[in-house]
Simulated scan of single mutants.
Amino acid sequence: DYYMFAVADQPYLKSQSVIKLIDKVLENKGNMKSVFSLRCGDTVGNPCVFHSSLIPQLLSLEGDKGGRSVAKKYDCVYVDIADERELMDIDTLSNSKHTVTL
């Protein structure tokens, strides 16, 4: 019924946070909430979970538009985490200066 969108460039994302997100989806499944996302304070990030009914909207995205544009149309359920570093993704070499060798 739900699909998780995750990226591979979040070196600080903890498995406990992903499990917390999945648990929230399972808790709310009967309420038919459509979108779930991790959040630390005001910062929202991946992974995100979308209800299968949103697949056509997600597949229609073009260019550099991401799933966040679809998520903003719905009452997103946020799962709060304590460490903002978990939401940091490393897209460029300049971003990588903030990381340590893992």
Rank of each mutant, 00 (worst) to 15 (best):
D42M: 08
G67L: 05
D80G: 04
L87W: 08
N28R: 14
K97F: 06
I90F: 05
R39F: 02
Q16Y: 04
L26K: 15
S69Q: 11
V49H: 00
V100P: 00
D42T: 13
V44C: 01
L87R: 05
V25H: 00
V35D: 05
H51V: 03
D83I: 06
D1T: 09
H98E: 10
L59H: 09
D80P: 05
C40Y: 09
K14A: 13
A71E: 01
D9I: 01
T99I: 10
E27S: 12
S96R: 11
M32T: 11
K14F: 02
R85K: 15
G67F: 06
K29T: 13
Q57T: 01
C48L: 10
V100Q: 12
T101S: 12
G63E: 03
F36M: 07
D89L: 09
P11A: 04
F36R: 03
L38R: 09
R39S: 12
C48W: 08
M4L: 14
S15Q: 13
E86S: 08
I55M: 11
E62M: 09
S37V: 03
V7W: 01
R85H: 11
L87H: 04
T92A: 05
L87E: 07
D89K: 11
R85S: 10
S15F: 11
S37R: 11
K73A: 04
H51F: 00
M4C: 08
K65M: 10
K14M: 12
N46D: 01
L102Q: 14
V7K: 07
P47C: 07
T99F: 06
S69I: 12
G30T: 10
R68A: 09
K97I: 15
K73L: 10
K97G: 00
A6D: 06
D9N: 15
S60T: 06
R85E: 11
S34C: 06
D83P: 04
V44K: 14
S53K: 11
R68C: 13
V79M: 02
M4Y: 01
G66N: 08
G45N: 06
N46Y: 13
L58D: 02
T43W: 09
C76E: 08
S52E: 13
E84V: 15
D80N: 15
V7I: 13
L87K: 05
S60N: 14
D75K: 13
L54P: 01
G45K: 08
N28I: 03
L87G: 06
K14L: 14
V35P: 03
E86W: 07
Y2L: 04
K14N: 12
L93K: 08
F50H: 03
